[in-house]
Design a protein around this nucleic acid. Structure first.
Length: 417
DNA sequence: TACGTAATAT
DNA sequence: AATATTACGT
């Protein structure tokens, strides 16, 4: 996504005009900062009615609306309805409440004919973002002067911004954005929200956590065994595993796993000492036939960064069983399955391919949804859509940045990318 | 700096 | 429950 024009100036929607609506001032402020940091033109509203007034006042004044779902006067839903009926702007809904998201999706899909795309990106563990548009086509029409492409991710946006600024500097123009904001995108979201200017940063996406599948664990054990006793340190284990084509692990991953692995061995040997079962630890040797083939989603070039349901059955621990994973489909749509014990269901190997975007699993969609899950939940129907890579590229992509304001800032913030 | 370990966070 | 991260001593 390197749109550079003839003058060498990077093109990107620097002036995308965004109206943000939230009754919570803090949210507004955080959001505003983040968006500004990305060179968006931000207008904030604390009341939906004000937002409407602005929108009605000049239908071309804004390009996108980002709104909270829960608001005292007019709630987000109503706002969407009005906007969609009067001006057809893309509206992004923010909500942190899982239940509300489910309800909202149901309502919107039921009541209107809007295109609702739940976008969940791993960077945001708490937020669902709903990109709501009347229809897909109108989205394609969303090409306003100066807006070549609104589908860029944060990284791209930053690099484009950098390019743009460099070019501007080369042309003797003072960049509009503070250079500092482009650097140190390394730092964590530990940004305490004080009013110091130094505190706003562009948060980078969180890496998905490693899933130690049976196969991965076997590779790990092999590496440990290959290295002798005393040599089985994280770094060397990592090297061995990389030689086995496991490319995505970090040393910390290995170290963490090693720690748990050793604890387990200890427990195991303590137990077997009591039982005089000297061979107990042998069970960790992998069978001669097993291969190093790792599940595709664990490969870096497989691009899939999905995580795994956190409610996989109780009994099976990767350390103390050598059950062969009977891969069952992770996109179980049969709701009756959810309540049942499913210790034999292993989901790890069944995630549909995605496109470099870390996406949560279905379990998370339903977690905390309580009885609402029983509704015909469009999420289960939309799963294909969620996992369908193309849609992530074609619409406004969103990356949520979870604030660590804890409960206070429950709605968190999002950055338009 | 890498490591091990325990504690704690997510 | 599993994995990540941190703190701290070696």
């Amino acid at each position: 996504m390197s749109a550079v024009d003839d003058n060498g100036v990077a093109e990107f929607p620097a002036d995308l005009k965004i109206l943000i609506v939230d009754d919570d001032k803090t949210c507004l402020l955080v959001l505003e900062r983040m968006l500004r940091k990305l060179s968006y033109k931000v207008t904030k509203c604390q009341h939906a009615r004000d937002a409407l007034a602005l929108l009605r006042g000049d239908k071309n004044r804004f390009d996108v609306v980002i709104s909270d779902l829960h608001m005292p006067d007019i709630d987000g839903l109503k706002l969407i309805e009005i906007i969609a009926s009067e001006m057809d702007l893309p509206v992004v809904m923010m909500s942190s409440d899982e239940r509300q998201r489910v309800i909202m999706n149901g309502v919107i899909q039921g009541a209107c004919d809007y295109l609702v795309k739940p976008v969940r990106i791993e960077a945001v563990s708490l937020i669902w973002q709903h990109v709501v548009r009347k229809n897909r086509r109108s989205f394609e029409d969303f090409q306003r002067p100066g807006i070549r492409n609104i589908n860029i991710n944060v990284t791209d946006r930053l690099s484009l911004l950098q390019l743009s600024n460099n070019a501007a500097v080369a042309n003797g123009i003072v960049p509009t954005t503070d250079k500092r904001s482009l650097q140190s995108s390394k730092r964590r979201s530990e940004d305490t929200f004080n009013d110091g200017e130094s505190s706003d940063e562009v948060t980078t996406a969180k890496k998905p956590r490693v899933v130690w599948t049976q196969e991965l664990h076997e590779a790990f054990v092999d590496a440990v065994n290959q290295l002798g006793h005393g040599n089985d340190v994280p770094k060397k284990i990592l090297e061995r595993m990389q030689a086995m084509n496991v490319t995505y692990l970090t040393r910390a991953n290995v170290a963490s796993h090693l720690q748990k692995y050793r604890m387990h061995l200890q427990k195991e040997s303590a137990r077997s000492a009591g039982n005089r079962d000297v061979n107990a630890c042998q069970r960790f040797q992998r069978t001669p036939t097993s291969s190093y083939q790792l599940p595709q989603q664990n490969l870096v070039n497989g691009h899939v960064l999905s995580t795994v349901p956190n409610h996989v059955g109780t009994g099976s621990n990767i350390f103390d069983s050598n059950i062969v994973s009977e891969s069952s489909h992770c996109l179980q749509t049969d709701a009756s399955l959810y309540g049942l014990s499913q210790s034999n269901l292993l989901y790890q190997n069944d995630f549909p391919p995605s496109d470099g975007v870390a996406i949560s699993n279905e379990e998370n969609l339903h977690s905390n949804a309580g009885s609402v899950t029983e509704l015909s939940n469009p999420f289960s129907v939309t799963d294909e859509m969620i996992y369908e890579p193309s849609f992530l590229q074609e619409e406004v992509a969103l990356v949520g940045l979870q604030s660590n304001m804890g409960g206070y800032l429950s709605c968190s913030s999002i950055a338009l990318v």
